[in-house]
Amino acid sequence: MELVCPAGNLPSLKAAIDNGADAVYMGFKDDTNARHFAGLNFTDRTFEKAVRYAQDKGRKIFVAINTFPQPGGFDRWKAAVDQAAEHGVDALILADIGVLDYACNTWPELRLHLSVQASVTSAEGIRFYHENFGIRRVVLPRVLSVNQVAHVTRESPVPVEVFGFGSLCVMVEGRCLLSSYATGRSPNTYGACSPASHVRWEETGDGTNTRLNGVLIDHYGEGEKAGYPTLCKGRFQVGEHTFYALEEPTSLNTLSILPELRKIGVSAIKVEGRQRSPAYVAQVTAVMRTAIDECLRDPENYQPRGKWMQKLADVSEGSQTTLGAYHRPWQ
């Protein structure tokens, strides 16, 4: 099982590699990737350095070009594909059918992975991308139970990568428009969910309001720690109740099911968080590296250790973690 870690900048890339990532994924400094945040991602110069650092250490570089271009911007996505290919990266992570078609025709030797943003949950769907564009790996959305992942992995024509840790999308990726409904910008069109440009923190007499383009996402009382207003993780009213109607602020954590993921034939574990700090990347990569190594060495007796869980909880949203959809009762 390969460990795939996020890099939003050069220090994070080094942190991932130095702490044992087998592969690092990254994006360019524009809307061609799904972490299009100010101050994040790679320019020509830092990109070159990143590739060299990884190659020197014998690790892989994957480049995410996983948003959906509109006709007016398509050339920017082509340029991103070309730039990554010319630098000899190990794989591109793509979602859009048009971009996949461009990449496989222009760079037939280049390895293509299907991004989680392509929203594929079945072997039939994977076959579409395999037969038409020759994808060699698929990243599954965070909506399948372990049994369903096992089924897809068994039937899939290509190896499967799943999310192992990080912020949890509760909606199937690539088909979630909540953010653009509220702000005009979505992961698909702009590469950002609940963008910071539309966030407002508002002190009130009795605490803090968090707003997204004016919409109240949550209210925190005095002394309650206010979280970032990611739209699906706010408190709303349904019927008589006010609660986390969609999902609590919590992170995905699969340490407890690593042996199962290994057994069903998952090929790679992905860590979410290109927008997070180098310290986060270092911490999570180190824990996941140790856990995966221990799981592979002795899967029968593997148990997640308390100190690993603690370290991951420390860097999680709301300091709590969940198995998400992998665990049926969550659904």
């Binding site: 509760v170 909606m171 979630c176 428009l177 909540l178 409904y181 659904q331």
Partner: peptide, 15 residues
């Protein structure tokens, strides 16, 4: 009404 998102989770049941 716009179809905005789909999830593994059933929100009506959750509510």
């Amino acid at each position: 009404r716009l179809p905005l998102a789909y999830s593994a989770r059933c929100y009506t049941a959750r509510s």
